[in-house]
Simulated assay, not measured.
Amino acid sequence: MSFTVTAESIRLTDTALMCIFCCWYVRPLTCSTYSLPSIIAWRGDKEAIDSYGPAANGNAFYIVSCDIMGALGKTHFKHVVLPELPERYITALADSEEEESDDDRKPLQEPVDELTALLRKADRLHSCNGAEKAQGLNALLERKAEFDQKCQYLWRLSRAYADAHDFAVDLAEKKSCAENGKKVGEEAISFNPQCAEGHQWYAILCGLLSEYESIQNKIKNGYLFKDHLDKAIELKPEDPLSYYLLGRWCYAVSQCTWIERKIAATLFGEPPSATVQDALQNFLKVEEISPKYSKFNYVFLAKCYKDLGQRSQAQQMCDAASAMNIQTKEDEEAQKELDSFVASL
């Protein structure tokens, strides 16, 4: 049985789901329905299509009528010849199909608990480049009484203290941020010793605090810095930040004077040991994991190559650093150090 449907018989207000068979292909079409109340959605299979062959021409389709499917089976298809639709209809059909498919693909969203919402807010503020980054500390401190036994909260609070430290102007405020951040970081590790971020940010706060400590505490914090970075890398070996920080530690140790090593040996029995080559390998690991990770990473690669007598490689790293835009406060510091370094190269 066959009939012809004209463009005028299409009603754009309905959204019935029909399954149209054309040239061996099943295509669900969400659009206006044809003015045939008997046509209902039915999803066929390739076997049913194969038994009737492809469409007779480019405008021919097989449409299943579910009214008769139950009684007569798959053998009853209505052959419909569709005219070329006006552009306004085609646009409406495409839009309708896209909207429904997007809705179909959209997963059901579960309610977000308060801790998750807070952690997401903290992550968003940390990712900011301006002074807004420092606002994360207050946002987290406001909920400390509720979540101060959650490692995921605590290591972010430690990180927020580090961010606040970087934006503080007063020296006493900077030291206070470093002290509080280190304390919170230690708490995070005590709740979950297997949290890589907990070890990573505890190490960072140890490094920040060492800037305001005595020689003895500075060296002690240096050992803590190294130990916890090693642990962070063990737990999360593909995090470029940990390798970058370890590279900085190795480079700083390689530049220690004889007297500094002697003091460390006197206080702790064995001075820290690292070479420029150790530092280079860590900075190269950063580039391997995350190419163009930071302007500072290129600066320290350049320094390592220069110290190893490889000036052409050092110049390449300077060029790479210069090519990176300045987006953060750290980038500004890196640019200053790059300008000074290039002048001595």
Rank of each mutant, 00 (worst) to 15 (best):
C19V: 05
K74N: 09
C66A: 14
A321V: 07
D163M: 04
S294F: 01
R156G: 08
A320F: 00
E87T: 07
E100M: 12
L241P: 04
D103Q: 13
R105S: 12
E114H: 12
C256P: 04
V5Q: 06
V81G: 03
Y305A: 15
Y25G: 10
C151T: 01
C151H: 03
C195K: 05
D239G: 08
S51P: 06
L115E: 07
C31M: 08
L209G: 06
D148G: 10
L224E: 10
K218M: 09
R143F: 02
A321K: 04
E100V: 07
S101E: 04
N59K: 11
P193I: 02
L208R: 12
K182E: 09
Q281T: 08
E84N: 13
E213H: 06
E187I: 11
A56T: 04
R124W: 03
M317S: 15
K262E: 09
F341Y: 07
R124S: 11
A131R: 15
K74W: 05
H199A: 05
C318D: 02
P111C: 09
I189E: 14
D148V: 08
E333Y: 15
K303C: 14
V299R: 13
D307N: 13
K303F: 05
A145W: 00
A279C: 12
E186H: 09
P111R: 11
C206Q: 05
P271N: 10
Q216P: 02
A274M: 10
T33H: 14
A232L: 01
V253Y: 00
K174W: 03
Q200V: 00
E260A: 09
V64W: 03
L345T: 00
G207P: 08
A323W: 01
A71W: 04
Y202D: 07
G185L: 02
E87I: 09
R311A: 14
K285S: 04
L36P: 01
G185Q: 04
L235E: 00
V81F: 03
Y153L: 04
H76Q: 14
R43N: 13
Q310I: 01
L72C: 13
K121N: 08
A314R: 02
E100H: 07
N297F: 00
A7P: 02
K303V: 06
N221H: 11
N221V: 00
Q327K: 15
L308W: 01
A92Y: 00
E211W: 06
R105A: 15
L137H: 01
L345E: 00
T33L: 13
S190Y: 03
I63C: 08
H76R: 15
E330T: 07
S312H: 10
Q216S: 12
S9V: 03
W24Q: 15
V276M: 05
T75Q: 09
V112K: 15
L118A: 14
C318K: 01
L119G: 07
N325T: 12
P291T: 10
P28W: 01
K292W: 03
E179N: 07
L171R: 13
P37S: 09
K174G: 14
A188N: 11
E234D: 03
K182D: 06
L72K: 11
C304M: 04
L17Y: 02
V112W: 12
S96F: 01
S51E: 14
F61A: 14
A252V: 08
A160R: 08
E287H: 12
L17N: 06
